[in-house]
Design a binder for these strands. Structure first.
Ligand SMILES: [Mn+2]
Ligand SMILES: [Mn+2]
Ligand SMILES: [Zn+2]
Ligand SMILES: [Zn+2]
Lengths: 161, 161
DNA sequence: TTGGGATTGCGAACGGTTTGCAGTATGATG
DNA sequence: CATCATACTGCAAACCGTTCGCAATCCCAA
């Protein structure tokens, strides 16, 4: 049974080996932002004979052909997610480690304008927000209120990890 | 002669050693974003007897007491700059490596609103833009035009590195 | 089915950073 | 101003995520 990502790999003309199929499977199933060790761990559940080196190599390969995207969340290691049509950023809950995805057209527009005004064309950018839940033991008042009306994107709800 | 940062360190109650004084000097003089090796290199010009380990330890210390700030510009190593009152971000010229600082109140406001709407209080954030000069061999048209009227901050001109 | 280039597993090497340890300096105290 | 406990330093080894060389293996086009 070919996974979503395996199909993508075939389209890109990649040679499909057993380990690549397993990794593609793992990444297709994932809805979080696993690092290489985590991918390896999950892959090992399906097929024990996959080395971490191969996972590293495959992640790089998949990144190169833009099947997955590298995410830098500030902890030491590289994390990955399926390359998706909808660009987004991450808010990291520093208390729980939970990761919430968001998108903001306004923010992107401003960013674009800033670069342009400085005489630059954007070739990439990175934005992460680190925060703590408002309703927790927050020093600053304000009650909790669900995701609001602003451009906060496709998934105002959040994935974890 | 006590440097600006040395004075700050004294205020914070840090024990001032010879090597710390030299490092404080180097950082006071710097107007770019040196990594640890670069700080060590510059420090060695003033006093040859400073080990890289001490520089690492001192940078961490100064970061902890908020005399300097760590900057992550995407290359492997940590870079640093003097902690300043005016918050800003960086646009990295991927062709030249030049680093341009900018600030944008609108951008900060939107970021604030996004987090709030998601139910979070911001404790930190990170934003970098990678770009290439518009007037270079840009594929996408538009002539060059200097820094514009938008909130692009305190130093629309740029520092290098 | 075969053959050769691509891929794998292993361990060693990498680059940036941290750390254990023994020796040295600092600055508080008398 | 001398003394001393403590904090700091240099060195080298360890660390952590990641890459790489190499020989063995696999994939897939012919
Ligand atoms: Mn994501
Ligand atoms: Mn800066
Ligand atoms: Zn964006
Ligand atoms: Zn900001």
């Amino acid at each position: 049974m070919t996974s979503r990502l395996e199909a993508l790999c075939l389209e890109k003309g990649l040679k499909m080996t057993g380990q690549r199929r397993v990794i593609a499977q793992v990444l297709s199933d994932a809805d979080d932002h696993p690092d290489v060790e985590e991918v390896h761990r999950r892959a090992a559940l399906i097929d024990t004979r996959i080395s971490i080196a191969t996972v590293y190599r495959t992640m790089r390969l998949l990144e190169d052909v833009e099947v997955i995207e590298r995410v830098d969340l500030g902890d030491g290691r590289a994390r990955y997610e399926e390359a998706s049509a909808d660009h987004h950023h991450h808010l990291i809950d520093t208390r729980s480690g939970r990761i919430i995805e968001f998108a903001s057209p306004e923010l992107e527009a401003i960013k674009e304008r800033i670069a342009h005004d400085l005489g630059y064309k954007i070739v990439g950018h990175r934005l992460e927000i680190y925060g703590v839940p408002l309703d927790d033991a927050g020093a600053d008042g304000q009650g909790a209120n669900g995701a609001g009306p602003n451009g906060a994107g496709p998934n105002s709800a959040g994935k974890e990890q």
